[in-house]
Amino acid sequence: MIARSNQAEPFAVENLVVAYRAEPVLWNVTWSARAGAMSAIVGPNGAGKSTLLNAAVGLVPIVSGRATFWGETFKDARHRIAYVPQRESIDWDFPITAAQVVEMGITHGAAWLVPDFLPRWSRRLLGKGTARAESKTHGALERVGMADFARRPIGELSGGQQQRVFLARALAQEAELYLLDEPFAGVDVATEEILTSELRALARAGKTVVAVHHDLEDVADRFDDVAVLHRELVASGPAKATLTEATIVRAFRQPRAPLALDSTAHG
């Protein structure tokens, strides 16, 4: 797997500027994730942490700058990346089972057009990948301890269980880069442990993990590297060394200076 990757970083942003309407949310951010490491993106609310990931995977338009994956654009590298969106962007009342969620990570090409409510034998005739997909789904759910819940609607699971199902979907994608938006938000202790150990296992296997994280207290325990965002990149590097008192004060306590855009606009 690692051999396939070329020398460039698995995930890098250069001079990234992203705006929500007329308000810049990310300002000139340049940062890259270390291959085979677990990196956390931290910062206060509204610092643009999630925006960084969303812009990188093409969900939010980039005003200026770029995001690259092993030196390629997201489109070209898409098949090597697993993305886990933020909890808030999902309608958890949607009638879909845990197994069906995980299958979204495996289904490819024409398989999307094969309805799966038909009897099993007829699906076998339609696509020979079905059995393999089923075992993959089962395996992924098993890794996060959710195999018993495969046929349960996602809305009937707890917040932590839902997050585990989303991780299972990412695992089933068998990617080389994992981008997770607030995976630890609002989950129980058991889920926290499963998430940490599974992500750690990925990193040990040479995969790269980048997660938006909200809790400063446990960053250093869970992650190798950290990037501190406060619309601009405040600091980045190994977690323990970077999260100094001064950095935290700069990112979390200081009011954000307004960008003097209008004065330069007419200049």
């Binding site: 969900l59 898409r78 990346i81 969106p85 879909i96 979204m104 057009l113 309805p115 799966d116």
Partner: peptide
């Protein structure tokens, strides 16, 4: 024929768009 696509895209728009 659009069953899976409908289910996936209506449930999780960001994920399916990223895919």
């Amino acid at each position: 024929f659009g069953w899976r696509l409908l289910r996936a895209t209506l449930f999780d728009r960001p994920f399916t768009q990223a895919r």
